[in-house]
Design a protein around this nucleic acid. Structure first.
Lengths: 334, 334
DNA sequence: TTGTACGCGTTATCAC
DNA sequence: GTGATAACGCGTACAA
C-alpha cells in the first residue's frame, strides 16, 4: 500500500504539518526534526500524492509541453531536454503531441489548463505565435515560456537562437567557397523562424553584392517531402544553383535524395547545406554542412525559466549555435 | 476563474451528486435533468479537476507510457497512437522519455505510480521484459499492457506483430530474387524482437536449403551507428553478401550510407532491406525494401486494451504488417 | 430517480 | 519551531 503523510508523521513522532514542511523545504524546522522526518520518508518509501498536493496547494508539480512540429526528432529532443530539467525539481512533464491541423487546439489547451492545474506551459513554434493561445493563457493567468517566439518578446520569458545571424553565416560560408547561385528552401510561413532564416540569407547576398534571384527561393514546410519538391524545382531551373541551403534538416535530406535520384553528385556538382535542428540529416548524409541548433538545450533552458518561480522577471535567453562544415567544395567548373 | 461542480449544480438547479452522475455517465438520471446539467456544463465551460477526481475516486484519468527506445520516430509514433485512443475517453497520457541507461528506472516507475495514481501503464521494449519492473507493477496491483513482449504472455494484455513470420517473408523474398549470401544485422539482444527476427531469417535460409554462414550475421543495437558499423563488417568479408537485411530502419539507413561511402551502388551491386518501425529509412532512401510495421496502430491498440477496464481478460492482439518492395534486383553478375 | 454526509491526502491559516 | 483544523473539488455510500 502507499504510505501517506500520516504514516510518516507517526513513524517520525511529529505532526502532519511538520512532515509537510520538510517535504516542501520550508523554514522553521529544527535540524533534528528534519532529519528524523527524512529518515521516516526513506524508510516508508513515501512519495506525496500529486493529486492531493495540487488540490490543497497552489502548485501541481506538473508542467505541460505544447508541442506541434513536423519533426519527431525535434519533439523528442524537446521532451528530453525539458524532462532533464524537471527531474531536478520533482516536477512531471505532460507532453501533448498535437496534430498540427487540429481545429480543437485552443479547446485542448484550455481543457489541459482546467483539468490539470499545471504550474506552467512550454510552447514551441508555431504555437508560440498563435494570438488566440497567447490570449487564452494570459487571460487565465497561467505562466508559460516560449521557445523561438517570433514576436511579443516582452510577453513571456523565452529561449531562442540568432536564426538570422546563423543563416547569414552559412550563406557567407557558401559565398566564400565561390558559390554565386545559391538556392534557398524556406520553412513554412507559419513559423517565425522561416522569415528570420530567409532574411539572413538575403542579407548575406546583399552584403556580397549578389543580386537575389527570386526563382532561387522556394517555400517548403519543414518536412522531407517539401524539401524534395523544392529541390526538384531548383534543379529544374535553366541555370540551376550550385548550392542549396535548406531551412531544416528534413528538407535538406529531401534535397539530397532528389540530387541522388537525378544522378547529381554531392558534393562536386552540388553542395547542400541546412539548418540541423534535430541531428537527423547530419548523420544520414555526411557531406552535408549544417547549422547545428542545440534543440535539447533550448528546451532545458526553457524549463529552467519556467521553474524559476512566479515572480521571476521576463527573460530572453539566447542559445549558441554551431556551423558544422562537412563540405568545402566550391561550384563545379563550367 | 475555474468553474466547479458546485457552480454547475447551482446553474442547473440540481445537487452536486447529480452533476457528478451526468459527468460519469451513470444510470438513473432523468433525461431532462441530464440535458439541463449538460447545458450548464457547456455554458460554464466546466472541466472536472483531475486532481480532485483521482483523490476522491478510484480512477485518475491518467495513464503513463514507459518508453525507452533508441529511435525518436518510434517514440513519437507510440505517443501519437496512444494519445489518439486516450482522447476518446478523456484520459491524459503522461509520457516519460527514459534514458535507456538509467539506473533509476525502477525507482522512477515506482515514483510515477505512487505520485500520480495512474490508471495504468503501457510498456514498450525492452522494458516489457524487465522482470524487476514487471514484478513491481504486479506487486503494486497496477494494470499495465505491453507492446511486443518477449515472454510471460499470460501476464498482461499485449499487442504484437509476427516478427518471425515477417523476417521469414523478407528473407524468402530476397532468396526469390536470387540472393544466396544475405547479410543480417540483428537488433540489440535486450529486445525480444531481435531474436524473433533473427529466427525468421534463419528459418527461411534453412527451408531454402542455404547453409547459414555465421559471419553473415552481425549484432547491432537498433541505431544508425551500429547499422553502419555492421555493414562495414559485412562488406569487408572476403565474399561479401549481395543483400543486407537489417532489423530496423535506422540500421538500414546506416548500411545504406556505408554502401554509398564505399561507392557501391544500391540497388545493382547490393540490395538492402530492413524492418521499418518508423517510416524513416523508407523515405530517406527509396530503393529500400521494407517490412512496414504499423507502430502507431500497435500503440493505439495497446491503449485500447488498457482502457478496456479492470476486469477485461488478458488478450493478445496481433497487428498486421506489410512487405513493401522497392527493389526487385537479384545479385550482381559475377 | 435524486440528495446528504463523509472522506480522499495534502497545503494554508492561525494558534501555541 | 511546532501543531490543530479547515479547506481543496470531487466520488462513494447510503438514505430518501
Amino acid at each position: 500500500m502507499r504510505a501517506t503523510i500520516k504514516d510518516v508523521s507517526r513513524e517520525a513522532g511529529v505532526s502532519i504539518k511538520t512532515v509537510s514542511r520538510v517535504l516542501n523545504n520550508e523554514r522553521y524546522v529544527g535540524a533534528a526534526t528534519r532529519a528524523r522526518v527524512q529518515e521516516a520518508v526513506t524508510l516508508l518509501n513515501f512519495r506525496p500524492s500529486t493529486a492531493a498536493r495540487s488540490l490543497a496547494g497552489r502548485r501541481s508539480f506538473q508542467i505541460a509541453l505544447i508541442c506541434d512540429n513536423p519533426s519527431p526528432y525535434y519533439v523528442y529532443e524537446m521532451q528530453s531536454g525539458i524532462r532533464d530539467r524537471c527531474e531536478a525539481d520533482g516536477v512531471r512533464m505532460i507532453a501533448q503531441p498535437y496534430d498540427r491541423n487540429s481545429v480543437t487546439l485552443l479547446d485542448d489547451v484550455e481543457s489541459l489548463v482546467d483539468a490539470t492545474n499545471v504550474d506552467g506551459l512550454i510552447l514551441t513554434p508555431p504555437v508560440t505565435d498563435y494570438p488566440a493561445v497567447l490570449d487564452l493563457l494570459a487571460r487565465r493567468g497561467v505562466r508559460f515560456v516560449r521557445i523561438s517566439p517570433g514576436g511579443d518578446v516582452d510577453l513571456t520569458s523565452s529561449t531562442f537562437i540568432d536564426n538570422e545571424g546563423a543563416a547569414r553565416m552559412m550563406t557567407e560560408h557558401l559565398i566564400g567557397l565561390g558559390h554565386r547561385r545559391i538556392g534557398f528552401i524556406a520553412g513554412h510561413p507559419s513559423y517565425a523562424t522561416s522569415a528570420q532564416r530567409r532574411n539572413g540569407y538575403l542579407e548575406a547576398l546583399q552584403t556580397a553584392g549578389i543580386a537575389a534571384d527570386p526563382a532561387l527561393t522556394v517555400e517548403g514546410s519543414y518536412d522531407f517531402a517539401s524539401g524534395a519538391a523544392a529541390a526538384e524545382m531548383l534543379l529544374s531551373l535553366d541555370v540551376p544553383p550550385s548550392a542549396i541551403f535548406a531551412s531544416s534538416d528534413d528538407m535538406a535530406a529531401g534535397a539530397l535524395t532528389v540530387a541522388h535520384r537525378r544522378g547529381i553528385s554531392v558534393p562536386g556538382q552540388l553542395s547542400v547545406a541546412g539548418f540541423d535542428d534535430t541531428a537527423l540529416a547530419g548523420f544520414v548524409w555526411p557531406p552535408l554542412t549544417t547549422i547545428r541548433q542545440p534543440t535539447r538545450q533550448m528546451a532545458y533552458q526553457a524549463a529552467d525559466l519556467l521553474l524559476a518561480g512566479e515572480d521571476a522577471p521576463v527573460e530572453r535567453r539566447e542559445i549558441g549555435f554551431e556551423l558544422v562544415v562537412r563540405d568545402s567544395t566550391g561550384p563545379a567548373e563550367k
